[in-house]
Write a protein that binds this DNA or RNA. Sequence first.
DNA 1: CGACGGGACGC
DNA 2: CGACGGGACGC
Length: 469
Amino acid sequence: MADRRSSMGSSSDDPPNSRLFIIGPKTLNEEDFRKAFEDFGTIEEIWVVKDRTTGENKGVTYIKYSKTSEAAKALETMNGKIIGNGTRSIKVMIAASREQGSNETLTKKKKIQRLFVMVPKNMTDTELYDYFKQFGDIDYASIIKDKATRESKGFAYVKYVKFSHAAAAFEQCDRKYKPVFAEPRKANSSRNEERFSSSFDGFHKSSMSLPPAPDHYGGEGYTKLMVIASPNVNQDQLWKLFDVVPAQIRGRTYASHKGNREVIYNTPQWAAYAKDKLHGFEYPPGHRLIVRPEYDNLRPSFSSKDKPKPDILQIAETIAQASSLIQAAGLSPDVLQAKLGIIQSTKESEVYCSIKLPDPQPLAGIDEETVARCFIVCTPSALPNTVLKDVFCRFGNLIDVYMLNNRNCGYAKYASKQSAEDAIQTLHGAEVLGMRIKVLEAEERPDANRNGRESIRRVLSSKMDSFLL
DNA sequence: CGACGGGACGC
DNA sequence: CGACGGGACGC
C-alpha cells in the first residue's frame, strides 16, 4: 500500500488538492489542455484518459500542478470555460485521491476552503481572524475551546470564501500553525473515545509508578478531597477542573457520596495544592465550588479534629447554593477566564518553590517568534502544564512551555533571549512542588526545513559519524 | 544525562 | 458525457 504511494510522484495528491479532475469534450487533446492550463503554474503531468482497449478518449483529464494554489487558480478560472476546438464547456474539479476514487460524492462534499490549524493557547478568535485575513476573505475563524473551562484546545478552523485563498494561507502562513485542509465534519466518535481512553491509561500507569511527592506544599495528611458543586456540573467538567494536577489524580471518576463528589490524589501535597487552587472558585459563574479535605482514611484523632460535621456540610452547601442564586446567572466566559487567571497566578508562589520567584509576567504577544528555547528536565517526574506555565512565565516573553509525551523533559519557548537566559539562571537546580528541575539552553533541533529523505539521511550519517568516532 | 508536542468541530 | 496509464533498478 505504501509502496505504491511513495513511487507515485506526479500523479499523487501531494501537495494536497493539487490535482484537477476535468470533464470535457472528447475532442480535446493534451495540447489543448496544456495551452489552456499552463499559465496557472507548473504542470507536472497532463493525462487525457483513454479507453484501455479501444483507445477512445473518455472525456476525462487529470492535470497535476506542483502547488495547491496553482490548481486553485486554474480551477477557479477555467471551470465552465470552452477551450480548444470544443463546443461545450469543461467542468473542473479537485481530483480525489486514487484510493478514494469517485464513489465518494467528493465533487460536492470536499471542503477545500477550510483549514485546520494549530494555534497558541492564548490566541483569541479575533487575533486568529486578524492574522489569517491577509490571505483572503474569511468566512469564519474559530478556535476550539474546552466546553467546561473555555480554555483553548490549541487548534482552530479557518474557512475562506474561496479555495484559492485557503490555498494561499495553506502555503504562506507561518509554519507554526501547521495547516492542513480540514476534513468535513463527521461524527467519528469511536476513534476519539479510543484515543482518549488509551491516553488515560497512560496517565494512570505513570501515576502508579510515581514516587511520593515531597512536602513543600503543605503536607497536611489528606489525599482525598470532598467537592460540593452545582448539580449542573457533570463529572467530566469536574475532572477537567481538577486536572490542574493531571498526572496525580488517582482513579478516573469521582465517587458519589451523599450527592457530593470526591477526588483522590496520589499524595497529600497534590491534594493540598488542588484544594488551594479550586476552593472558592466560581464554576459555573455564580456557583462557588467548595473543596474540603476528606480525612476518613486516617486515624480518628486526625479526623475528629478537622473533619467537618455532616450538618455543617449541609449548611455550607446551602450557603453555596444561596450565593449562587444571588449572583447574576450570566457572567460571561471572559469573566470566568479572568477569575481562573487570578486563581492560577496569585496563589502562594513562594510556597511551592524552593527559591524566590519573580512575579508572574504576561505571555509574549501572539505574533512574536520564538528566539530562544530552554530544555527542561524534571526529576523524578514531570510537572503539570499549569505549574510549568506559572513558573516559566515569570521571566517575561514566554511563548509556550510543555513536557514531551510521557517523559520528564520538555521545552520552554521565549520571544526574548534575555528571558530565556534569566529562566536558566534562576530556575536551574530549583525545586518546584518537590520536583528538581534542570533548565538548560536547548540545542537546535535537527533541520526542520529539509524534506524527508534528505534530512533522514543527514541524521543517520551524523549518528553514524558519532558512533564511529 | 533527560532532546524536539499537539490534531477534529456539542450541526 | 464523467474517476485512474505508463513508466521502470535508483541511493
